[in-house]
Design a protein around this nucleic acid. Structure first.
Lengths: 250, 250
DNA sequence: GTTCGTCGTTGATTTAAATCAATGGCGGGT
DNA sequence: ACCCGCCATTGATTTAAATCAACGACGAAC
């Protein structure tokens, strides 16, 4: 896991001095969306920049281990991160996938309650938790933003509970593809031929299914013309409306 | 749903003027734990008291309907509340059970993303969301507390995802009983013969199971001596350690 | 006191998804 | 160039839980 300090952030400042409010890029990370650092004031930007470190994480490398002291918070800059919890015998439940702009490491306790790894080679911005907490006290606007993010995540978690507890395999896969599409769109990426960077196994562990069931369900949706499987992990949502109906259980 | 304003809160003040910090009772609701109102200053207590309304909700009565404008936040004072989401065809996923001291109604959006009903006859304190938000800006300490609660709930939600996605029926039921026991203990109630106020159907919708599977699994744990089913919805955790092993998937 | 609806339990059967198994493709390492 | 291991896919079989079904207990309503 290569690490280097961010020095040359000057070129990103203009976006803020230009008077942009939200979404504005995080000076340290050049993040636009849903970020802890969005819409900071000039003085706040400087303080954030002073404590940030940028990390490069190779595919499959760990970023956080459940049970370890929660000393850092992270902001994803590029790539994709998987967040998960394990049972003693190794069964794994993904609790989320993170993309550029997403935030990681919010913890109430002294230790992390989950693990995180890079799905593909990724870069993240790392902040010492203690320093972030000091900044939150100093700048309540940042804290409000964090609360907004937490409550957004909570709503997403409840939606995921509905999926895990009550949807069948086809509904799960349809929901998953649409979620990826919406999140890509939010980040200004193409919403239709979507890029699915994670393995069938990762998807299964996110949806409470096995690799085989995920693969079969993809094949099934494809044979019914709802999706097309393109090379390089791309998927076309050929019948988005149909997928939306399926995802909602209609 | 009977409603009346809270006037006589004077008798609760002493706990705060005595200089107690945390957990301290909420002046309006007499709540001790995990409450929005815990550890308030005297002036904050008065402002909270000025905007609170107490509601009585009969068993089965709705408190929140998904999609309705999110105009209030709630604090549970007595009884038990179920929070859930529905699919179009009526499949239901409980996202949580709330007990005295628990907080409800945190929402980022303009509408609620879930529904809530009383399991048993309950009382709740209701606050207008706009006024709460104004208070949060005025008193960042309250906001910090709210953030702590949100991140606690997020951790619980992730734990529940692990349960829903990867645990079998027995592990789910064991986890559920232990959760009820721990939460009862936190509220100063007996942790061993626990009171289970919700129906088998409610439990099933919480754990992603059917009524029948819940019932069979209870019977099975009982026949193996792990639990005892007592009258009036009480359950004895005869082999707590064994239940803990089962819950963790060991 | 009787009836009706809900609840919990148990049994029989079905089924969706898991498991077990085999294959071919692809990419990295030597 | 050649393995080796991982990944995706598909087929055959098993299985945990759902579904369908029946019954008794209980409480509320009339």
């Amino acid at each position: 896991m290569a690490t280097f300090d961010v020095k040359n952030i000057g070129h990103l400042r203009p976006a803020i001095s230009r008077g942009e409010t939200m979404p504005s890029p995080c000076a340290a990370c050049s993040i636009r969306h849903l970020s802890l650092c969005a819409a900071l004031q000039e003085n706040e930007v400087q303080e954030m920049a002073a404590i940030v470190t940028t990390l490069e994480v190779g595919a499959g490398e760990p970023l956080i281990d459940e049970g370890q002291p929660a000393v850092h918070v992270f902001n994803v800059t590029s790539g994709a991160i998987r967040v998960y919890k394990l049972l003693i015998d190794g069964r794994r439940q993904m609790t989320g996938f993170l993309f550029p702009g997403d935030f990681l490491g919010l913890a109430n306790e002294e230790t992390y309650a989950y693990s995180a790894e890079a799905v593909t080679a990724s870069t993240v911005c790392r902040f010492p938790r203690r320093k972030i907490e000091a900044l939150l006290i100093k700048y309540p606007r940042m804290e409000r933003r964090l609360l907004g993010m937490a409550s957004h995540e909570l709503a997403a978690a409840q939606e995921q509970m509905l999926l895990l507890g009550r949807k069948n395999a086809r509904e799960k896969i349809a929901s998953f593809l649409l979620m990826l599409s919406r999140r890509a769109e939010q980040r200004g990426l193409p919403a239709d031929p979507i890029f699915v960077p994670m393995s069938r196994n990762d998807i299964g562990d996110y949806l409470g299914l096995t690799t085989e069931t995920v693969s079969r369900t993809f094949s099934d949706l494809k044979s019914k013309g709802a999706i097309e499987l393109l090379p390089a992990g791309k998927v076309r949502l050929a019948q988005r409306e149909h997928l939306e109906e399926v995802a909602e259980g209609a």
